[in-house]
């Protein structure tokens, strides 16, 4: 079965009474050309699930395969040529040009001893073009704005030339214009044949870009809901998982806290 496949995956974290399961028996099939979003409240285990999917930590139960190969069996560099990751936080410790930053994505393709990477320059050029930041290539990474930094990170992911991308909160802390631009780039990445697994808080963006959505956490955890985007991003699911009242408009998702107090309305 080609694709990034999670079969019966259980994700657990250490608790006071031994491991506590956050998600139990989750199966996902991320095909190339599709976007799968993972949503859920804070602490639901989205980030941990993504690390399991990326092969960076073992699942408590179940398996993860990439194009039929167990991800755990892949040597790190080969794994990194199949699955690209955009982590939530990037504690960058030194300054460099944007281009040098994007070039770091070529690491798994570069020869250890000679450093040779024949297709590297072309891949980096293409990544900069796809992210629309060719003009920024010579800028210092510490001097660009938060939105531009996120675009540079996406370009770095593009430069890995991996078929499967795993992204953790790619739009968090961005202004609406940059958030939408990133969302558009993710859709474009899927159209050009990438398979995307995206953890996201912004349910409106999830509804717009996702083919399938897994909603984890909430009072029923470690149970979860998985299905087509339209079926999961729906009041019936969200009200229970988040403990709010959900209202859906054609292009927005709104929430109200239940109760008698004057309801603050949040529109995402």
């Amino acid at each position: 079965m080609s694709g990034l496949v999670l079969s019966g995956v259980t994700v657990a974290v250490p608790g006071p009474d031994g491991p506590r399961a956050l998600v139990e028996g989750l199966s996902l099939h991320v095909r190339r050309g599709t976007v799968t979003c993972v949503v859920g409240p804070n602490g639901a285990g989205k980030t941990t699930l993504l690390k399991v999917a990326a092969g960076l930590r073992p699942p408590a139960a179940g398996t993860v395969t990439v194009d039929d190969t167990p991800v755990a069996a892949l040597p790190p560099r080969r794994r990194a040529r199949r699955v690209g990751v955009l982590p939530q936080r990037l504690p960058l410790s030194d300054d460099m040009t944007v281009r040098a930053f994007v070039e770091l994505g070529r690491h798994p393709h570069r020869s250890r001893w000679t450093g040779a990477d024949p297709t590297g320059a072309a891949a980096v050029d293409r990544a900069l073009t796809e992210a629309g930041i060719t003009a920024l290539a010579g800028a210092r990474i510490f001097s660009v704005s938060g939105g531009e930094f996120q675009l540079a990170r996406l370009a770095q992911l593009w430069a890995t030339e991996t078929p499967y991308w795993i992204l953790d909160e790619p739009t968090t802390a961005l202004d609406p214009a940059h958030a939408l631009r990133i969302a558009g780039l993710l859709v474009r990445a899927a159209r050009t044949g990438h398979g995307l697994l995206v953890a996201i808080h912004d349910l409106e963006i999830a509804r717009r870009i996702a083919d399938r959505v897994a909603c984890i956490g909430g009072p029923d955890a470690p149970a979860f809901v998985e299905g087509p985007a339209g079926a999961v991003v729906a009041p019936a699911v969200l009200d229970r998982v988040y403990g709010v009242r959900t209202r859906l408009w054609p292009d927005a998702v709104g929430f109200e806290l239940p109760g008698d107090e004057p309801p603050p309305t949040v529109t995402a």
């Binding site: 990326a54 960076l56 790190p76 794994r79 990751v85 982590p87 990037l90 504690p91 690491h107």
Partner: peptide, 10 residues
């Protein structure tokens, strides 16, 4: 990039 992001790059 940090130790975990580096791990994801192989």
């Amino acid at each position: 990039l940090g130790h975990e992001p580096a791990a994801s790059l192989g």
